[in-house]
């Protein structure tokens, strides 16, 4: 799925400006990492692309359509083609992993099929395949509250893989994993997206991971696109400018929270 932003801005209800004057073109099947300091607007951008929030300014085009001119029904159909990977996957604690993964295709299912699937999972094979890519096939029948944070994040990814979303939007998808597992998981996600021909945008705090795995990098700061470059063209100076002051302003918080440090 391709997408295009021209002059898009977003202002929260409380007047806080999260995104300003964004111009962006993404072709079908591209894989892009979004980096930038905390509060730069990465989550807002992903939510805007996922049709969760309506831009306050400018034009947003998804595929060939403008989603916010759709009827609610058409918007729902469009959303079923968008997969969202959350930093803290919102999965019901008492739900089994298999059901959580199969819920990815709810947008494509009839109510009757959803009910039948709730009583007894209809596509064990499909859920198992999606989980196996993330080395979680053995957790198929566990309950979500029995999993660790990193495992939950991978279940959230498996749900989107099963959904076969044409646009995958990942917000800090590997923040709860150790560096090795994070790299392995991101690699699987990128490979799966490439196989399905899906467009993938992921926000990441670990710059090295972004540079190593994604061909195109967008640096976001104060709601503006600071740079939009191929990975090999991103210079160390640009990176320090992107994160400048942030570490000076709050050295304590970076020290306390090693998983979220800007550079790893």
């Amino acid at each position: 799925m391709q997408l295009q932003l021209s002059g898009v801005g977003f202002t929260h209800a409380d007047g806080h400006v999260a995104l300003r004057e964004l111009h962006l073109q993404v072709a079908q099947g591209e894989q892009i990492a979004i980096i930038g300091p905390s509060g730069a607007g990465k989550t807002s951008l992903l939510r805007l692309l996922g049709c969760q929030i309506k831009p306050s300014l400018g034009q947003f085009q998804l595929g060939t359509q403008q989603p916010w001119q759709h009827s609610p029904r058409a918007l729902r159909a469009l959303r079923s083609r968008i997969g969202l990977i959350h930093q803290q996957p919102p999965l019901p604690p008492k739900q089994r992993v298999i059901t959580a993964v199969l819920a990815g295709r709810l947008g494509q299912w009839s109510l009757l099929h959803s009910l039948r699937n709730l009583l007894s999972p209809q596509d064990r094979q499909g859920a198992e395949t999606a989980l196996a890519r993330l080395d979680l096939a053995d957790k198929l029948f566990q309950r979500c509250d029995q999993l660790s944070g990193g495992q939950l994040q991978r279940v959230g990814i498996a749900r989107v893989l099963y959904q076969q979303a044409e646009l995958m939007l990942a917000d800090e998808p590997v923040s709860a994993m150790d560096p090795h597992l994070a790299q392995h998981t991101l690699r699987s996600l990128c490979a799966a997206a490439a196989e399905q021909g899906s467009t993938l945008l992921a926000s990441l705090h670990t710059v090295d991971l972004a540079l190593a795995l994604f061909p195109r990098i967008i640096g976001l700061r104060d709601g503006r696109i600071q740079f939009d470059l191929p990975a090999q063209a991103v210079s160390p100076e640009q990176l320090s400018a992107l994160y400048a002051n942030e570490r000076l302003a709050s050295p304590a918080s970076t020290a306390l929270n090693p998983l979220r440090i800007a550079r790893c």
Binding site: R79, P90, P92, T99, A103, L106, L111
Partner: peptide, 26 residues
């Protein structure tokens, strides 16, 4: 909590489906 159902709504499921898969399990 409403977030699980909200997330399902954002991926195109109907209100009923989101209730069944996001709210009812809790």
């Amino acid at each position: 909590p409403t977030t699980p159902a909200q997330a399902l709504r954002h991926s195109g499921s109907s209100a009923t489906q989101a209730f069944l898969y996001g709210t009812l399990p809790n």
